[in-house]
Structures are given as C-alpha cells and as structure tokens.
C-alpha cells in the first residue's frame, strides 16, 4: 500500500523551500526561509562585549528561537515555551558541534569581542520548524557583514568604520527531520503541522558538507529499528545536497 500524505506528497519528498537573504536592512545579516507554509525570519545583530576571563578572546553567539502566539493557535503569550527553549538549545548545540562560526573569530582586540545575537522568529508554523530554523540561521550567518572596529592605541577609543567585513562561516550544517506514525513504519520527511502533531516519534539528522554527522536528535517517542535509522541517514544525505545547492545559489546571487 502506498501511503498518501494529506498534501499529496510522497513520503520522501520535502516541501518547496524558498530562501531570501538580506531583506532586513537594520540587521547585520538576515534571512527569510519558507518551507511549504512554515515561515521563519532570522536576523543577526551584534554588540560589543568583553570576553569571559576563562575564554579570553572568544566572542559570543547566542541563538534564540521565538514561537509567538501569532504563528500557531497552540502557543500562548508569555515566557518562552519549553518547545521554543529546547529548539533554541538544539540550534546552539549545532553551532558549537559543527563549529560553523568559530568563537575566536569574533575577537576584535584584547578583551573586546563581538556578541552576536541570532534571533529567529516563526511567523507561520506548519510543522518542521527545526529544519527551517537551521536553514535560516545558516543563511543569515553567511549573509552577515560586521563593521570593522578599530581601537586607538593612545586613549583606547573605539572607532566603528563604514567598511564591512564578511563573517567567516566554516561549515554548513543542514538538518533533515523525519516523523513516523508507528514503530518504524510510515516514515515521512519534512512533516507538516498535522503530521508532526500525530507523530509517534520524530528524528532530526544534521549533516555537514564533508559527510560527517553533527547531531542525531531523537527525543523519545516510539523505538526505531536500526534499519530505519540507517535508511533515514541515507535519505538525509541525499536531501541535504539540495539544501547545500540552494544555499550556494543564494550566496552567489547576492555577491554578484
């Protein structure tokens, strides 16, 4: 029996992905990602800060995901929900695990470092926010240009120049999320809101371009046989290629 998804998609087919970078002029870097109806906006802002004494010269990169009541009726106003906090942590883990931004690259001079805030807001929640948020974060970081800072030797005065420097992004982690409805059966990639809501389990696989894994995140749910796990990793590999191609095309069109 061939399983038909509610939107007519094949089990192993993702929805259409659209990336738009640099659309927010007030941020140092920004991106808007649409995955089907799921819409994510990401902006990178920088502040000058002093590095911690235990890691001198290391900057800060703080990723934060917001799921406002606007994006889905399930979310209520108030302090960040457990879901948004755990996705924020997931994104922070990906940055540290993949080393896509090296914290020592954010150093300016002596104690002075950049503290980058990567703020991600979900505008429309139609499932699979994780994949879209990782993509938005990566596209925004790749798009980030920081002003050149100079500290004068005489009086320690900080000067912000007009010249912009591109932030070095070392690797490109891409996440592919799967859901399954029962013990290892009916695996579907890129779940919609309904599919995610009814799922028996969820699995997110993050890969880097060199083929290494960065995170294999399966927060509970029904058990998954190893064969299905392997199948999902292989599928994630082929699907991630499209995303890297997309990211490459996007960055090329911006530069020219």
């Amino acid at each position: 029996m061939v399983l038909e998804r509610s939107d007519g998609r094949d089990c192993w087919k993702t929805r259409r992905t659209i990336i738009n970078v640099g659309s927010i002029g007030t941020a140092y870097g920004s991106a808007l990602v649409r995955r089907g109806k799921t819409t994510i906006v990401c902006g990178v802002k920088g502040e000058l800060a002093n590095s911690r004494p235990e890691n001198p010269g290391d900057g800060f990169l703080v990723v934060n995901l917001d799921l406002p009541p606007l994006c889905c009726p399930l979310f209520k106003p108030g302090p960040p929900s457990e879901q948004s906090q755990s996705i924020s942590q997931f994104l922070n883990d990906i940055v540290t695990s993949s080393g896509c931004v090296v914290l020592s690259d954010l150093s300016i001079e002596g104690q002075l470092v950049w503290c980058l805030f990567v703020d991600i807001i979900c505008l429309e929640y139609d499932g699979n926010v994780i994949d879209a948020a990782v993509l938005a974060m990566l596209a925004a970081l790749t798009n980030t240009k920081l002003p050149k800072i100079t500290v004068s030797n005489d009086n320690g005065e900080i000067k912000v120049s007009e010249a912009l420097e591109i932030l070095a992004v070392k690797s490109q982690p891409v996440t592919t999320t799967f859901v399954y409805q029962q013990d290892g059966g009916h695996v579907m990639v890129d779940p919609s809101f309904e599919e995610e809501y009814d799922a028996a389990g969820i699995l997110s696989i993050t890969l880097q371009e060199d083929g290494s894994l960065v995170k294999l995140y399966k927060p509970g749910g029904l058990q998954l046989p190893d064969s299905v796990l392997e199948q999902c990793i292989a599928k994630a590999r082929s699907l991630s290629k499209d995303m890297w191609h997309l990211l490459k095309t996007v960055s090329e069109t911006v530069e020219t």
Partner: peptide, 21 residues
Amino acid sequence: FAFESINHEVITSNTQGSYSE
C-alpha cells in the same frame, strides 16, 4: 542513547560534536 528492554531498539538519541556514520 536510550534503549527499550524488549528488542533493545533506540528510543532516544542525542549527540554533541561532529563524527562519522
């Protein structure tokens, strides 16, 4: 990793750092 006691299949997986398959 967390495993269940019947077939010893994976229930939970969480990882840090980069590694090969």
